[in-house]
Nucleic acid binder design. Sequence first.
DNA 1: GGATTCACCGTGAAGGTTCACGGAACGATT
DNA 2: AATCGTTCCGTGAACCTTCACGGTGAATCC
Lengths: 328, 328
Amino acid sequence: MSKRVTILDVAAAAGVSRQTVTRAMNDMGDISEATRLKVLEAAGRLGYRPSRFARNLVNRQKTHAMGLVVASFRNPYYTDIAADMLSVAGERGWQLMMAASEGEPAEAVQLLSSEVDVVVGHFEATPALVKAAGALPLVCLESASDMPGVHSVQIDIESGIVDAVQALRERGVRRFGMVDSGYSVQVRGVYEPTPKREWFEAAVGAELTGVIVGEETISGGGRAFADLMRMHPDTEAVLMFNDLMALGAVQNAHATAIEVPGDVRIIGVDGLALGEAVDPKLTSISLDRHELASKTFDIVEILAKADFAQLDPIHRTVPSMILWRESA
Amino acid sequence: MSKRVTILDVAAAAGVSRQTVTRAMNDMGDISEATRLKVLEAAGRLGYRPSRFARNLVNRQKTHAMGLVVASFRNPYYTDIAADMLSVAGERGWQLMMAASEGEPAEAVQLLSSEVDVVVGHFEATPALVKAAGALPLVCLESASDMPGVHSVQIDIESGIVDAVQALRERGVRRFGMVDSGYSVQVRGVYEPTPKREWFEAAVGAELTGVIVGEETISGGGRAFADLMRMHPDTEAVLMFNDLMALGAVQNAHATAIEVPGDVRIIGVDGLALGEAVDPKLTSISLDRHELASKTFDIVEILAKADFAQLDPIHRTVPSMILWRESA
DNA sequence: GGATTCACCGTGAAGGTTCACGGAACGATT
DNA sequence: AATCGTTCCGTGAACCTTCACGGTGAATCC
């Protein structure tokens, strides 16, 4: 039951006072070299380490921490977002504490609640979640809510799709195809068109050749792409539901001697860093992740300053941007 | 300049004492239902939230935090490790604070040093780093050190390679090839065989058909694999330097009508979750990541309990395991 | 020699919470 | 009526550090 070694222990061991120990530890001046060394020696010998709690308690206005709830660390989409959150956090002097929800956000929020000033993440603001958060403000990513104390940052993928179609038209494309996600089939047994498909169809209008539904994996994307090209060989550009599937499409094109982007242009969604790892490098409709992180911290900093209890929910939207790489 | 609302503010607003507020907030009993509601109402109205620092200052023995320095969040290898660290941290009741080093670990360690009890990460224990850590103990992943206060967890990939070769032999394979990383060419202008290559060559002995050097990307792996199969068409099994390159190999095999694992077996290294997303699913020599996280926390918990100042460095090794999926 | 400066160091307080204990009010018991 | 037990609530102390300020001794100056 070894008690923790405190600043007083060091002070006693070195024969000085608390304040002198502080001065020695933080290179503060107003201290002679001899005592500084004496204190440092005593501190090292005892293994003294300032308590982060006591330290931060004193100057708590200097350190802020944000909790980030990530759906899964095995999904590059989320880790890419975490990467940008992390870098923006660094720029703005915030600490980031992470938790993986794996479908149970309330648990993760609960866990973080006593350690951070605000919780951000991909979750729906259910009453249970708000309860778990206590008086902690919440920021939802990619989902809105009107509950008090729940703010949000949303992503405008639609405009990205519209812009992409527009840009492809300017490059002479007249026949568009798409591979949609069959996730709803898996879950509910019946296929429901995703919003992406609806936005895409609205954008291309009569120039649509066909839409194929595929599994949300690399190889699922490859298979669906192959089917699409077999059924509609005249397709000049294909929007893949996400980058993982687009990766498969690029590889499959390579396999079947289809030139990309010569014969067909392939464009993904998400802008994963992984898209750099294939040849040709994947063009993708990406949310502007840095902007997402930036806007998130804008909100977070407002919340940190203000008396957020009686603050109206803040909502921001980040535009999407097209990462023109090589495949389109 | 709104001051923070403290427990005293709530106590005053509710007309009770501090202790009663605590009782109400933590469902502690010894309090009437009427006052409990009264306090809760006041707390909600004022937006009171207990200071995590003051709270943890009191019962600091209950909450521990570990800092994880990750080389890059854009690399699935590291995020997969982070995922397991996170889940084991949850099991053992530890908080995880992350920072990305992006080549500058000292900075990341510095950042974390006042927030956590121990720092773990992929870094070399340089004197500069130890200085940045102060009296904070360090745990190096995949790199050893003899400096005091620096502990380590290492990974035994060699045994995994030996086991894999052995298992492949039992499946009748007699001609082995490998794709090695050309990273050293990129960096130092001259190719140096990696340890993986040396272990592999020692394991296969005279049954080696050839080794090709490739770029560490999906498509780089695909190209190198194609070269290898062109130059040594009789190769029956290929060890790819890592899973990213193996992903490319699998796709390329598909493209050139080589059956996997029928014609040639492909095996990667790292055991990335991403390996599940291709068809056939990638077989891989994986470090046992859960074991890595587990052993890391074994050390971390020893450090948290003991007077680590005068503790000899602790070193652990995790075995690798082979993820037999479909490609081999 | 008394006043002033300088370098160095110590003391009180603050920061916000929780724990241990003590105390008041009130009904029940002897 | 005195004692006891229960229920509810408040006070002092502890947790550990840092900040602001005050103090000491020695050297310097007029």
